[in-house]
Simulated scan of single mutants.
Amino acid sequence: MTTEYISQHLDNLRLHNSSPTTIRHRLDNLQRIQAKLGKPLVEATTDDLVAWQTALRISPSSIATYTAHIRAFYRWALLNGLIQIDPTIHLVTPKLKRRMPRPIPERDLSAALTTARYDHQLFCAFLLAGYCGLRCGEITRVSRSDVREDENGKGAYLVVHGKGGHERIIRIAPDIYAEVRLLMHRTGFLFVSKNGRAYTPNRLTQITSAHLKAIGLPYTLHTLRHRFATRLADLGADVRDVQAALGHAHLSTTTLYLASNSRRSTTSVDKLGRGFAAMAKRQSAARRSQT
Rank of each mutant, 00 (worst) to 15 (best):
N152W: 10
V192N: 10
L37K: 03
N29R: 01
R240T: 03
T2C: 11
G196Q: 02
T46F: 01
K36G: 06
A233L: 06
L183E: 06
V147W: 00
T205A: 12
N80R: 15
T88W: 01
A125H: 03
S262V: 14
G236S: 06
A210L: 13
D86I: 07
H185I: 15
I70G: 00
Y219K: 01
R144Y: 10
I104G: 01
A214P: 08
Y74P: 04
L258W: 08
G153Y: 03
A198E: 06
K213N: 09
R282C: 12
G188W: 10
Y157Q: 15
L78M: 06
Y66M: 08
R14A: 11
F73A: 03
T93L: 15
R24Q: 14
P105L: 05
T54N: 12
S260N: 13
A278L: 14
N202V: 09
R203Y: 07
R197M: 13
K213W: 06
V142T: 09
Y5G: 00
A77M: 11
L41I: 07
A233H: 06
T22F: 10
T88S: 05
T114I: 10
G165M: 04
R107N: 08
T93Y: 13
L182R: 15
T3V: 08
L10N: 09
I6H: 05
D28G: 05
A286F: 09
R171V: 10
D234A: 12
E43K: 11
A156S: 08
T255P: 03
R14D: 07
V147L: 12
A51Q: 13
L37Q: 03
V50Q: 13
I169G: 07
C132T: 02
I70C: 02
T21C: 09
A178P: 01
L96I: 10
Y157S: 13
T205D: 14
A116N: 01
R171D: 09
Y131T: 09
L182I: 08
A244T: 05
L82K: 13
M184D: 03
Q283H: 10
P20E: 05
S289P: 01
L30F: 04
L272V: 12
Q290I: 13
A285Q: 07
D28V: 09
G247S: 04
Y74I: 01
P101S: 11
A210E: 15
R99F: 08
P20W: 00
Y5V: 00
I6P: 03
Y74N: 05
Y199L: 02
E179I: 05
H211D: 11
D28Y: 13
T205W: 15
S193E: 12
E43L: 06
A64T: 02
T200G: 08
H185K: 14
E4F: 06
T21Y: 12
H69R: 08
L10Q: 04
K95L: 10
I89H: 11
I104W: 04
D48C: 12
